[in-house]
Design a protein around this nucleic acid. Structure first.
Lengths: 256, 256
DNA sequence: CCGGATTTGTTTCCAAATGTTTCCATCGCC
DNA sequence: GGCGATGGAAACATTTGGAAACAAATCCGG
């Protein structure tokens, strides 16, 4: 995928943070740097990241704790930075689950190399995470992430194109929040919006055509004027998909 | 993996070799050190090792070549040692498949830490650590890696050509992830894709013809537009192959 | 080592999917 | 009501992947 990997750096030392950020940017990564765990949470809510570089020593919640938390809810790769070589043992002993680590002071090239290695190992894009339970439900609809299929409240299959489904997934991962076109584009395609880009609008429109009872009066995807869009229903994570009684996909109601 | 891990060191510098060996032994590993690739092959024939520490620069066959060979016949974890930092890029660029690497001169503690990390990663993860059991199962299908045979949910043999089977195996080892054509080509043939290469597409198509209920609406192999493909089903590693009632291979349903 | 069968890769064509542009209705504000 | 900004919709252009046909490579039995 053409998408540039997005790195999140959690590091309170301003100097290191800027240095590393700049270096990584020069090497074709998109970078966001935050100084502590709380900011990290905010950043994670807003965007999708491919890898986190995490300082061990942080003000507030410390790196180890953050690492453990991250591990719990997702498989996002982590590289730890530690100040002293002796701490390595501690880290490993605790099995906190980072994918790699680096001892300060380190050579940026080394970090770059390890980031590339971890990303490669992770198998490329952590794309629309197909977590454990691949089945989501909202407002009567069901969405199977593994097979990328959508079923309406009547249980009929509704055919979505790939981009439509990606967008719906992005919405599902951040429901009931206003998402700017820019965020949505980042979430679905990992790129920033060009000045007059309208593709998200078009996609929302097509989704509405297929999903809304009355596309003029959307119930699922709300337009937030000059803000973006918001996905209103509440999302449930369903346990597992029983072999669905094979039903022919609706021909996506006379679109085009 | 309750037994003490067994490490094989391939390193021609006698001094380093003994130093490292002693250090690792002091830290609860069993260690065997050999000076070159030939000896390595002998050692591998004799014993079972959990991890190989491989020097890049070796007399005779060099580390990269050895690494590639090792990767071909097994999943044994490898840590590379390189003399210069600049070589890292080369290593990574070549995608030779080491699990980690270390730049000389290194601190033995560092090596120890990385060995532990790699072992943990390799052993702990419920990953498709398909080492022993050669029988995989997914969505009702069964795939015997040892004899390279595939059986459909009805228990009938489905004949796959070699390339098709390789591709299926690659998918099975990385299920539910978006794999680019390039990655797939690398995984199946160890080569990079040429600019307009379409061979993976064709292969996917042929696999679908043989495996999907309705190739137009794939349930197993999803197309991720401008991203690659994703293998949807969950993989189980089956215990052992009961002597399957030998059945003639289906003639792969009138294809071609 | 030969000739045919099979497998694998390449090319081409085509339909579907996606993005872009443009026009227009609507909204909010004055 | 008028006006600029904003988003919806339709038309259009471009990109992408599936399928078929073809060509090259490999296998296999003699």
């Amino acid at each position: 995928m053409s998408r540039t990997p997005h790195i999140l750096i959690v590091e309170d030392d301003r100097e290191i943070a800027t240095l590393v950020s700049r270096f990584l940017r020069n090497n074709d990564f998109r970078v966001r740097a935050v100084p502590n765990g709380r900011e990290m949470d905010v950043a994670l809510r807003d965007g999708r990241f491919d890898l986190i570089v995490l300082d061990l020593m942080l003000p507030g919640e410390d790196g180890l704790s953050l690492c453990r938390r991250l591990r719990n809810d997702g498989a996002i790769p982590i590289i730890m930075l530690t100040a002293k070589a002796e701490e390595i043992d501690r880290i490993l002993g605790l099995e906190m689950g980072a994918d790699d680590y680096l001892v300060k002071p380190f050579n940026p090239r080394e970090l770059l190399a390890r980031i590339r290695a971890v990303l490669r190992r992770a198998g490329g894009v952590p794309a629309p995470e197909v977590g454990e339970s691949s089945l989501l439900a909202f407002a009567g609809w069901r969405l199977d992430k593994a097979v990328r299929r959508l079923f309406n409240p009547q249980g009929e299959r509704v055919a979505l194109t790939g981009a439509e489904l990606d967008l719906l997934l992005a919405f599902c991962e951040r429901p009931r929040r206003v998402l700017s076109r820019d965020q949505l584009l980042d979430l679905t395609q990992g790129r920033a919006a060009a000045p007059f880009e309208r593709s998200i609008d078009v996609l929302v429109s097509r989704l509405r055509q297929k999903m809304e009872r009355n596309p003029r009066e959307p119930e699922l995807i709300q337009t937030i004027r000059s803000g973006g869009y918001m996905f209103s229903p509440e999302i449930q994570v369903a346990p597992a998909m029983q072999a669905a009684p094979e039903q022919p996909a609706l021909p996506a109601s006379g679109s085009r």
